[in-house]
């Protein structure tokens, strides 16, 4: 009774083989991450220092620090957030709380999906056409940040919508049944309970924005400016573009320098991701429903 037949044994063996095959494929994923990280740490690690972070580049960018690029990246990201967060959150609130399933909603959803799929170089061209030329902002932080904002808008919208939708429907019903208007319900019940998820999405957006190169290189970021930006209409340096310049445009760059910049960029992105994950875990544990 219940003994395995020839066929059972053979099938078991095949199933085992597939298991290992898939496992191997999954493990392969880790390899590039490890290689990239260790390469960056080994080659770029020695470059990182306090003065690297706080000094201007010198000698045609072959020496000195990356202070203006670091500051520029932070500046670009912050200004982009200033636009994309209010806009994205508002759009997500509309889609999640107000929109009925009609053609307008479907068109908006389609637009979001497509926006998310547009290659960043196309965003760059759009940014040049719209912000640099049409609105006359010139190549400036404002133009670059607006381009970044549009590019990351889908991330904010999708994350916010998910966060809103994860608030139990029972809370909304309880609130409505007490006589609250839709907006009162959103403000007093939905948003306070969704804010953690929204923030997670925003942080992820930051990490993505910080690394982008194409959308900013035509719209506001430049290879080198000898001074810090003073307003959003100035041009700025940025880490990602700096890395690109060092690796491809400047001659006689010490080999380690680009790796240092790359390592810094990766560290910023990883830190942001870690922050976002930590935040999510913390808030998930705090939530009780």
């Amino acid at each position: 009774m219940f003994e395995a037949t020839e066929l059972n044994i053979r099938n078991d063996r095949i199933q085992e083989r597939f298991r290992y095959l898939f496992l191997a494929m999954a493990v392969v994923l880790i390899v590039p991450v490890l290689v990239i990280l260790s390469l960056l740490v080994i080659k770029g690690g020695p470059v990182l220092s306090w003065s690297f972070l706080t000094e201007f580049p010198k000698n045609g960018m072959t020496e000195g620090g990356i202070y203006p690029a670091l500051l520029g990246t932070i500046f670009l990201v912050l200004v982009a957030l200033l636009f994309s967060v209010p806009l994205g959150v508002a759009a997500a609130i509309y889609l999640s709380e107000y929109a009925k399933d009609n053609w307008l909603t479907r068109v908006i959803n389609l637009a979001i999906i497509n926006l998310a799929g547009v290659p960043s170089i196309v965003h760059a061209l759009f940014g040049v056409g719209a912000f640099v030329i049409f609105f006359g902002f010139g190549t400036s932080i404002l133009s670059a940040s607006l381009t970044l904002a549009i590019m990351t808008l889908p991330v904010v919208i999708v994350a916010t919508r998910e966060a809103l939708q994860s608030v139990p429907h029972a809370f909304r019903e309880a609130c409505w049944s007490l006589g609250a208007t839709k907006w009162q319900t959103i403000r007093k019940v939905v948003l306070p309970n969704a804010v953690s998820g929204i923030l997670t999405g925003v942080i992820l957006e930051v990490s993505r924005t910080a690394g982008e190169t194409a959308p900013i290189m035509f719209t506001g970021a430049v290879f080198f400016v000898p001074f810090l930006p003073e307003s959003v209409f100035d041009q700025t340096m940025a880490l990602s573009l700096h890395l690109y310049t060092l690796s491809t445009q400047v001659t006689d760059v010490p080999e380690n320098l680009p790796y240092g910049v790359a390592l810094l960029l990766i560290l910023i992105v990883l830190a942001m991701n870690a922050l976002s994950i930590g935040f999510r875990t913390y808030l998930r544990n705090k939530k009780k429903w």
């Binding site: 809370f171 309880a174 409505w176 049944s177 007490l178 009780k288």
Partner: peptide, 15 residues
């Protein structure tokens, strides 16, 4: 809704 209150199947106090 001020006049007509409602209690639901699953208790749903706000957090």
């Amino acid at each position: 809704r001020k006049e007509v209150g409602m209690v639901f199947q699953r208790p749903n106090p706000f957090p």
